[in-house]
């Protein structure tokens, strides 16, 4: 098991490094990186001072090394518009997104296990068909659009929910609802398929032949096996959730990392963009590692290998 975990951790590390390299070289690819880091209307003096400060006149490998050393110190340079280290707004915004993502993920997992299991119990039945249709609908709806329509309906027409901000519980309803759409639909389908597979499996036959009740069959023999396939997908969903968070935070004006990134792009604040992307990536890799641990806990066949 430790070998398996070490292997996975190594893969995550390689992926993270690949991203760091990608960010570095993409930034240099455009020619003069001052164009990236400084606003379009920066004066020549400003550009020169900037280039000297960051050593853009040095050889590329030297630059890469000092870039790596800076990263290790969480030094992403200065934010141009906030006149403070770029990492500061990122660390401020990160918990907001994390909370939003966690609440959504927990809700999506719980709801999908319940809905998917019930649908799997009577495949082809009315509940199953409605659940399937809704999950396809969830996968087909543009999240930014449904967010706008939600604001139009609940805030503008009915006036019962706030349009933006993070103050009260009411503020959470629409963002979480919109963010839930995609993972809930997908996970429900996955739980359903996995559960149908498990319920038709030979070992469930054995359990029934032992005299196990339907409840015991589902919860003792079913859920744990079905969770194996759910967990593998949940990892990809965690990454996809960030996609949704960018949209949701933009539309609902949440001071999260997605919002920060979009603003950084609009203000051409490359240091902040770079910091937020690397911090997000780090978070996702930690998440994937946790998922791997959970997987190997649940599946003894992995543990042995």
């Amino acid at each position: 098991m430790t070998r398996f975990m070490l292997g996975r951790a190594l893969h995550s590390l390689v992926a993270l490094l690949a991203l760091v390299v990608l960010v570095f070289f993409l930034a240099r690819l455009t020619g003069d990186p001052t164009n990236l880091f400084l606003p379009m209307d920066a004066s020549l003096a400003e550009r020169q001072a900037f280039a000297e400060r960051h050593g853009f006149d040095e050889p590329l490998l030297v630059q890469f090394w000092s870039y790596l050393v800076d990263l290790a110190h969480l030094d992403f340079g200065m934010s141009l518009f906030q006149a403070r280290p770029a990492i500061e707004p990122v660390l401020g915004a990160f918990p907001v997104t994390l909370r939003l993502a966690l609440v959504t993920m927990v809700l999506a997992l719980t709801l999908s296990v319940v809905i998917g299991s019930v649908a799997a119990y009577g495949p082809g039945g009315l509940f199953d068909r409605i659940a399937s249709l809704l999950s396809i609908l969830g996968a087909s709806t543009p999240d930014f659009w449904i967010a706008i329509v939600g604001i139009l309906f609940f805030s503008v027409s009915l006036g019962i929910l706030p349009t933006s901000g993070t103050g009260t519980g009411w503020h959470w309803i629409m963002p979480v609802g919109v963010l839930l759409l995609r993972p809930l639909g997908l996970l429900t389908q996955v739980v359903r398929a996995a559960m149908i597979g498990v319920l038709n499996s030979a070992y469930v036959k054995t359990a029934r032949a032992k005299g196990a009740s339907p409840r015991r069959v589902i919860f003792v023999h079913g859920v744990r096996n079905a969770m194996l396939s759910v967990i593998t997908v949940a990892g990809d969903q965690a990454a996809a959730l960030i996609n949704g968070a960018v949209i949701v935070e933009t539309v609902f004006g949440w001071p999260g990392i997605g919002n920060l990134m979009i603003n950084a792009i609009k203000q051409r604040d490359f240091a902040v963009l770079q910091a937020s992307i690397l911090v997000t990536a780090l978070a996702i890799f930690v998440m994937n590692l946790l998922i791997d641990i959970a997987y190997s806990r649940l599946d003894p066949r992995i543990r042995a290998g």
Binding site: A15, G235, D236, A239, A240, I265, L273, I277, T280, I284
Partner: peptide, 23 residues
């Protein structure tokens, strides 16, 4: 497969953000 995993484990929108920002 490992190379592909790197792309996979990263939110596609972020990748798009950075590439479109630069290019």
């Amino acid at each position: 497969l490992r190379g592909v995993d790197v792309i996979m484990s990263f939110p596609s929108l972020l990748l798009a953000l950075i590439v479109l920002y630069v290019l």
